[in-house]
Each structure stands twice: as C-alpha cells, then as structure tokens.
Write a protein that binds this DNA or RNA. Structure first.
Lengths: 164, 164
DNA sequence: TTGTAATCTAATGGG
DNA sequence: CCCATTAGATTACT
C-alpha cells in the first residue's frame, strides 16, 4: 500500500476542514467563482445575512415590539407569505381540474391563474398540497388493509391500483 | 395573433375540464402512469396499493400474519427512495465542509460517506441540493436587498456578508 | 382544534 | 453538473 504523502493527501480532507488537523498553512477555500466581481452574471457572491443585533433595543419600545412579534424562524427577515384565502368558487374549479389532471403543467397552471385571478405559484402550491392530502387519505385507507385483504381474498383480486 | 387551432389548444384547457367546451371526444384523463405496466420502474407517480398476493396465504398462517403486520414502508409505491433523515451532527459536518468546498470531489465525498455512515450518492445529492439552496438564497437576498436596507436603517441592525 | 397554505429539503429526471 | 419539479415532513395561521 502506498504511503500517505503530503502530495497524496487530499487538499480538503475532512480533518482539515473540521479543524481536527492543523496544517502549517491555512486552508485555501475552494470557490470556483471567487475573485469575480459580484456584478458578474454567474452568481452573486455575497450571501447576505441580515441579523438583528439587539443592542439598544430597550431604548425603543416600538422597535422592540416589532422584533418580538416577528418570529425568529430561519426566514423571519423575509417573512412568511400571508395565507391565501381561496374562495369557494376558486376551490371548486381547482377541485374539478384536479379530478382530471392532478399534475397540471405550467400552461394549465397559468391558464388557471388567469381565470381565477391568482398567482401561478399559488396554483402550484395548491396542487402540491392537494396531492399530499390525497396521499394522506390513501395512506389512511391503508390502515384498513386487513379488511381490504379479506375482501380481496373473497373477490379473488390480486392488486388494488388506486388511480387518481 | 395566431388563430387557435385544434393543435395549438391545450389538451387540458380549463374550459374542457369544466365541461364548458365539449369536444367531440371525451376528455382523456391525465394519468402519467396510465397504460404502463405496473412493473415499470420510472413511474413513481403510481400509488400502487400492492395489497399482497394472497394466493395460498390461507395455508400459511405465519406468513400471512407477517404480511398483515408489515406496513407499507419502502415498497408501498414503486421506485422512490425513502427520504433520508440526516441527523443534526451529520448536517453540521456537511455544512462545515460546504463552507469550505461546495463542490467536493469523489474522494472527499467518499471520505465523508465513510465518516458519516452514509452512502456516497446521498452526499452527492446533499451537496447538489445545498448548492441549489445557496443559489436560491443568493437570488433571494438580491431581491430583498432594497427592503433589507430600509429595514436595516430603521432598526439599526448590522449586515453580515458571508463571502463564499 | 382542525384544515390547509406555506415552507424546507431529499429525491427524481431531463438537458 | 444545473434546473425544475416532486414527495415527505413540518410549521403556522385561520
């Protein structure tokens, strides 16, 4: 077996990365885009974390209240999108479409968005959640599997394909 | 404006789905998996209730019991890998490595896999998704930059620029 | 409390 | 590799 030389060692061994091994020189970062100006097209080099420093909060009640009200979730600084309240007629149409096509493509989603006066991504999310609900329902029905199996023995089927 | 021909019309226009438009033929349902044999691999969309081939079950009580007790975990629908739940410590190490090298080569991935007791391809996927997340964050932070600056002025927070 | 819109991320397939 | 999209799981709001 070949001896482990400095040359054969990985530039990025886990030990080095985790700081468990301390080479003489500091670890050179692997940034394919490093050295490019941030205006360059490929991507923005700066990830901006806007973190609140809470110094001096006590002096500003309003400000403090704001900060207390905003939940410190990972994306609190952006905020959660206000919950969309679909109307009955909107849901009816969505459900009708879902019965036929539960994986609407971009065109159909745009079409729906236009007709229902909603953003396309709300449509997208609605279908995602609707499919999840359906799966949940199907899984629930799986709980009654023993009964189903009994039934299936009786009627001599092999599989149940639940097509939706 | 180009005329709407039968060819240019969507297979699933809302009008067709809602029945407001009646084509000569009835609407064909959009079932990605329809017509395919259930054994086919690609089709992760199939909710296959593989309800146990019950031939001869009655002759083997033990086996039947096993099958009844076993919940449909990995096999209840075909082809999709069960979601891997990384532990906190695994994620911590992955994140640490990512800070240094977000494009780990095969050697480093294998190294990580060994240390974290994961398959190398899970590492690979993790880094792909992590890079996608980073790109998303970068775009996002760019979009909210003006707002963020306003916010920053108001509440006198500091910016953290994390340079990659 | 329930239902569901929204979020996060592992997994998939195609380019 | 990237990209779009999915499923799965969870959070949070009405």
């Amino acid at each position: 077996m070949a001896p482990v030389t400095a040359e054969s060692r990985l530039a990025f061994s886990i030990d080095r990365i985790l700081g468990l091994e301390r080479p003489g020189n500091s670890l050179k970062l692997h940034r394919p885009w490093a050295g490019k100006e941030h205006g360059q097209s490929c991507c923005f080099n700066v990830l901006l974390f806007c973190c609140i420093k809470a110094e001096n909060d006590a002096e500003d009640e309003n400000r403090e209240q704001q900060q207390l009200n905003s939940r410190p979730t990972s994306n609190w600084y952006i905020g959660r999108r206000p919950r969309t309240a679909f109307t009955n007629s909107q849901v009816n149409i969505l459900e009708t479409v879902f019965q036929v096509n539960c994986y609407p493509g971009i065109q159909l989603r745009e079409q729906l968005a236009g007709r229902l006066d909603l953003d396309e991504d709300r449509i997208q999310i609605w279908f995602q959640n609707r499919r999840a609900k359906l799966r949940r329902l199907l899984l629930l029905s799986w709980d009654i599997l023993p009964i189903t199996i009994e039934l299936h023995k009786k009627i001599e089927t092999k599989f149940y394909f639940v097509l939706f």
